[in-house]
């Protein structure tokens, strides 16, 4: 009889044990930089009225930065909420269901935000 440890000993590391940790840090730094950009941009806008916001997001640079912000923010949100679920939900079935729900919710939210941004970037002046 072989223990689980004995079965894997000597096979080497999967080299992805720190993957989640690294993605959480990387997305935190990206979100920080883009968040500062967003805060400064919003302060500099004359108002947050519809026309002003639409014109601001119709610029290629602003739309691109906003798209990157959406991607890095929702990636970071996904990483963080995953840890919350894994730390506090111990029943395997509930945990699997909540992680599935989290991934779906984040994907849907990011998709809506990105499609909205593309509409503004491509047809912003038409609105």
């Amino acid at each position: 009889m072989e223990t689980p440890l004995g079965q894997v000993r000597g096979l080497g590391s999967a080299h992805e044990g720190a993957g989640h940790w690294w993605h959480e840090r990387m997305s935190s730094i990206a979100t920080l930089l883009l968040g500062i950009w967003l805060a400064v941009s919003l302060f500099r806008l004359p108002s947050l009225d519809h026309g002003v916001v639409v014109e601001w997001l119709s610029s290629t640079v602003n739309a691109s930065a906003m798209l990157l912000l959406v991607v890095s923010t929702f990636w970071h949100i996904r990483m963080g909420l995953q840890v919350f679920i894994e730390d506090y939900v111990h029943e395997e079935g509930n945990k699997t269901f909540l992680l599935l729900l989290l991934n779906f919710a984040v994907a849907i939210a990011a998709a809506i935000a990105i499609v909205a941004l593309l509409k503004l970037a491509v047809g912003g002046s038409a609105v």
């Binding site: 997001l57 959406v70 929702f74 970071h76 963080g80 935000a113 909205a116 941004l117 503004l120 609105v127």
Partner: peptide, 17 residues
Amino acid sequence: AIVGGALLVWWLAAAAG
């Protein structure tokens, strides 16, 4: 993550809408 994420999506979707 939950409150801010939802509001960010709503703001962008409203601007595009």
